[in-house]
Design a protein around this nucleic acid. Structure first.
Lengths: 152, 152
DNA sequence: GTAAACCCTGACCCATGCGTCAGCTGCAAG
DNA sequence: CTTGCAGCTGACGCATGGGTCAGGGTTTAC
């Protein structure tokens, strides 16, 4: 499988795969003798995991730190002993702990925000009749060509 | 109160206040005749709210859209009728709705991630004895001078 | 009156997660 | 053989939320 197909299969772009590779999230894949990258299904699975984690708010660097242990997240799609574990284990464990704390914080705060906004919304709804199509000026998504940035 | 004091009172920097002003989160404050900005306590309160919302994951643009209604979030610190409401009410209401959806999504996904990581952490903990100070290479925070970006 | 500390307006810098050329090579189809 | 899509490696661009000068006025304290 070459990069275009692998990317499509994982729901992303070739550019992204090269980027993940460059940043250490993905092991450098086997190349054809002319230099083209070839990916396996396991690679695609890994990319999917990576995207999942990104969409959940981890950063590329976080995922790189975890990279030796990503297979734990997927039980059976990835090989078991691809990487020398023991050196990074404690750091990874620490990282998980910290991440958990951060996530708990996020959840707490978001929950509070949810309440705040909910109240706001209710108050506004009292004053304003529910928005109709023509009180809203075209709710197009307005995404410009070059829109990049964080996956949310 | 001049900008430095106001910023300190709100727990941020002059630069940030100017930035919020420029992006429409803060009304242009009164200036002395020599051009220096002067802020009231109400302004400081508003900045605190802005920071709160930022830390909860809203973007500057979101907050700008809400800016006419921020006082709803603070009941009694801000004046009641400073802005002509009616034009933007429906949009703001819509925005709240969308934001609520997004936040619910975040919460759901974070909760899932929490579980995943939690499992990972447990599995790692089995293999690795709990990290001690010297198995971790200096857990310094390593924050470089210019570390900017999103408030998390 | 003069230095120290603060403010003003640009303007450029950082990290993220890629998009998007640019300029060159590879490969399968007609 | 050639055409045209695909891949390769840089390198620059974008949006966010400000930090950090630079170059010049202001205010305050001694």
């Amino acid at each position: 499988m070459r990069i275009g197909d692998a990317a499509a299969a994982a729901g992303t772009t070739p550019r992204a795969l090269r980027f993940y590779e460059q940043r250490g999230l993905l092991a450098p894949p086997i190349r054809t003798r002319t230099g083209q990258r070839t990916y396996s299904n396991a690679d695609v699975a890994r990319v999917k995991i990576i995207r999942e984690l990104l969409s959940l708010g981890l950063t590329v660097d976080d995922i790189a730190t975890l990279s030796a242990h990503l297979h734990l997240l997927d039980g059976d799609t990835l090989p078991e002993h691809t990487v020398p574990d023991h050196i990074r284990l404690p750091q990874a464990s620490e990282m998980f702990r910290r991440r958990l704390e951060i996530i708990d914080g996020h959840i707490t705060r978001l929950t509070r925000l949810r309440q705040l906004l909910s109240v706001c919304h209710a108050q506004l709804a009292e004053k304003a009749p529910p928005a109709t199509a023509d009180t809203l000026g075209r709710t197009s998504d307005g995404r410009a060509p070059g829109r990049a940035g964080t996956i949310r």
